[in-house]
Nucleic acid binder design. Structure first.
Lengths: 198, 198
DNA sequence: CTTGGAATTGAACGCCCGTTCGGTTTATGC
DNA sequence: GCATAAACCGAACGGGCGTTCAATTCCAAG
């Protein structure tokens, strides 16, 4: 019979994905065995297959879920308005979102080479959709004459790389708060595209 | 007896390291077997151990060699002089050097988590030494009043992240030449730190 | 041509891999 | 308390892993 809400599947499934995400981020997809994921959840390796079809699908689903959530979160956070303040909002949003999900980010950015062709195509499509966000902002800013952008695609990639780089060094409790980091990056982002200080 | 120059060891050793670097970059350290490296070189798996002590040492040596070469190359390329033109030189140097060694860069940046504690400490020291390069330039620029830098360490990390990001998307024969990419990034680097157009 | 060390093979070692599956436990709706 | 299906165990499958090692091939120096 169908289990009521609160069944084991509804709590163990997410625990499997959370454990896999943490372990993939820490050690890499290829270095993590199904037995180790299962041990983290407290079940046998065979029982994993009640929650996921196979290891590769688990990876693809983790990456896709992260990127879809990222896109949806920006759609909700996009303030619209003038391109320069949208650029600043994007920088702050990107840093905040990524610092809140370091494991998912590490997996989504670092395990592209572990994907088989089908999954790779699906994930690449989502990545391109997110890359289009800063490109749109920069195009608007250049057209409006508020930004000096030699190449929109290049500048968009440079912006994303700069912002995502925060994940490699930022640790809570360090010298700077998240808000400090957001503000400084928002300033640098404006400088990068020749939009003067606020 | 000692082999003369041109012996097998002097040509096969480098071939082993080159094959390992290429495979590690493409598939990741954990996903590449010693048998596959050996097959790439055209020898049996056992013969690898005449050139390297073990797989982990091979990885550490690849990463250390890359970072030491990077540091030496900057020492040779550093033009000195005023901080703003040094910043531009650094940006161009970083992009050129990294685009010339995409495999080594992928391994050196992406396999930190595959390192055991000893190797990790050695590699981290080299990374910190390179991170000190932009920090020094930015400190000089801020002191001289030629740059506006809210936090030297943060700005240095942001600069490196932006420049290294080129490796994720640039392909020869694309829309932009390497010189285009260098020039645009040098301009953005100046803008990031509030040093106006040239 | 002999010699001796470098270079290499190929089998073997013990271990872990992803995945499958028959059987058993668990817990709910009736 | 019984039926039932989800949840899970634990062994098994075929295969690949990093590494070792005795035996063999290779080849320049003497």
């Amino acid at each position: 019979m169908a289990r009521p809400s609160g069944s084991q599947a509804e709590v163990t499934g997410p625990r499997v994905r959370a454990a896999a995400e943490r372990l993939f981020a820490r050690h890499g997809y290829a270095a993590v065995s199904m037995r180790r994921i299962a041990a983290e959840v407290g079940i046998g390796a065979g029982a994993l297959y009640h929650y996921i079809p196979d290891k590769q699908t688990l990876l693809v689903d983790l990456m896709a879920a992260h990127l879809e959530e990222l896109l949806a979160a920006w759609r909700a956070a996009d303030p619209g308005g003038d391109p320069v303040s949208r650029l600043e909002a994007f920088a702050r949003f990107h840093i905040r979102f990524h610092l809140d999900r370091t494991d998912a980010v590490t997996v989504a950015y670092g395990e592209l080479r572990s994907l088989e062709p089908d999954g790779h195509a699906r994930i690449e499509t989502l990545r391109r959709a997110y890359e289009a966000v800063p490109e749109g902002i920069l195009t608007d800013g250049a057209v409006a004459g508020a930004m000096r952008v030699a190449d929109v695609r290049l500048a968009g990639m440079a912006l994303i790389a700069m912002l995502t780089g925060v994940n490699t060094w930022y640790r809570d409790g360090g010298r700077l708060t998240r808000t400090d980091v957001e503000t400084i990056h928002a300033d640098m982002a404006r400088g990068m595209v020749g939009a003067g200080p606020p």
